[in-house]
Design a protein around this nucleic acid. Structure first.
Lengths: 227, 227
DNA sequence: TTATGATTAAAACGAACGTATGAATCATAA
DNA sequence: TTATGATTCATACGTTCGTTTTAATCATAA
């Protein structure tokens, strides 16, 4: 009894992950999912209750580990720092590097899940964004505080915005790994497809850190003082 | 005869733009669109042929101007430079600043279109990405070349990636202007909603430039030389 | 072996989807 | 004023959607 159930659930989750990534939530039908998973149409509703619940479970299966790992790594970093601020580069790597390294781990969803996540962060569906907000809140607050400590000379509002920009650059980078070719016809000469990911991580990391530590913006109008 | 037609077409385009932004392409029905536009259900197929064609027209209406403007501004910059490379900050502003300043221009779609565009760049639907690829290709190539000239010491592949990251940060920043609150519950103290956009542009610009000019990544393995 | 609860299977439900049709209505030129 | 082509309208078509139902099949404990 155990074996068949688990297999069916996992096959549905795998198929859902892949198809939601490829066609989006609204663009994927239950019949596509159950067909790809080689299970009966009613199996999704039996095991998960509804399409929405399936979507949530697809994310929970991966995000639970990811966010626990992010917490764990930051714990270690802060313990090592002995009350001193953690280096910004270490914080960025703990948050985004941990995410990106999932791409190489097929047991944790690999590139498929990363692309699904990247796309979903700009997904219009209300229930998905609300769900992700709840899943992410605690981790976000921890990292936000760590960055405040690490960059005391940068206004907090600025850090919050830059965290936001970093999320965007990362989401897009992982969501569009092959959309890149489509949109721009760009040729990346010194990479072949096998090690592209190994290069992407340091490349993105450099970019994120450069943005995070960039010169503070000059607001052209006098609104800063006049209010 | 002219008046009624134009009004109907425009009302449909406006409603489509808003609803596609709010619920995505697949998540928006013809009945929602025609209902919001106060036109008959058959009007979309009469004026545009199909839902897909409507979506394309929603984009063309705004992108034609945007990309022409980007070309025009870069023409001016290169003419002023007299053969010398244009400053990276000017190139970035010409490409992303021109886009972001659309947000304040309701006649060109304003924030609604910007958020639609931001979300669509990671949209799964094949025909949309293919369409945007075609619309964007020429402009992209021009700006890519300008950046190559402006940053001769940075490897071309690196510039291409960083352009990609900049696109992502920008898309996300404009797509998620209120999703930000939802996902993170962040409080941006010194901004109220009226001038948030005036601040966002220089903030994002600083971030993008910081990332574009960041220290080059160090690849940990020896793959750079060994191949 | 038989009883029981968990799982799978086939079929159907009503609702909503994008699209097409043909008649009614409109603006305009002859 | 009437004829004509453009536009709007109500309605229906055939599909596909997510979900539900009821019966069959399975694995396991008594």
């Amino acid at each position: 009894m155990e074996n068949r159930t688990v297999d069916t659930r996992e096959r549905i989750l795998d198929a859902g992950e892949r198809l939601f990534m490829a066609h989006g939530y609204e663009g994927t039908s239950m019949r596509q999912i159950t067909s790809e998973a080689c299970v009966n149409l009613a199996a999704v509703n039996y095991h998960f209750g509804s399409k929405e619940s399936l979507m949530q479970e697809v994310f929970r299966r991966r995000l639970d580990w990811l966010n626990e790992e992010r917490m764990r790594v930051l714990d270690v970093l802060e313990a090592e720092a002995n009350g001193e601020p953690v280096k910004p580069s270490a914080i960025v790597d703990a948050f985004f590097g941990t995410l990106l390294r999932m791409a190489g781990d097929e047991n944790r969803g690999g590139m498929t899940f990363l692309r699904l996540l990247g796309r979903t962060l700009t997904e219009p569906s209300e229930f998905i964004r609300a769900f992700l907000a709840h899943e992410y809140k605690t981790v976000m607050d921890r990292y936000k505080e760590a960055l405040f400590k690490a960059l005391p000379e940068v206004p907090k509002a600025e850090i919050v915005w830059r965290f936001h920009f970093m999320l965007g650059a990362t989401s897009y980078a992982i969501a569009g790994t092959d959309a890149l070719r489509l949109v721009t016809d760009w040729q990346i000469e010194d990479d072949d497809s096998t090690d592209r990911l190994d290069r992407l991580v340091p490349r993105l990391m450099s970019f994120l850190l450069g943005g995070l530590r960039a010169q503070l913006p000059q607001f052209s109008d006098a609104a800063v003082d006049s209010k």
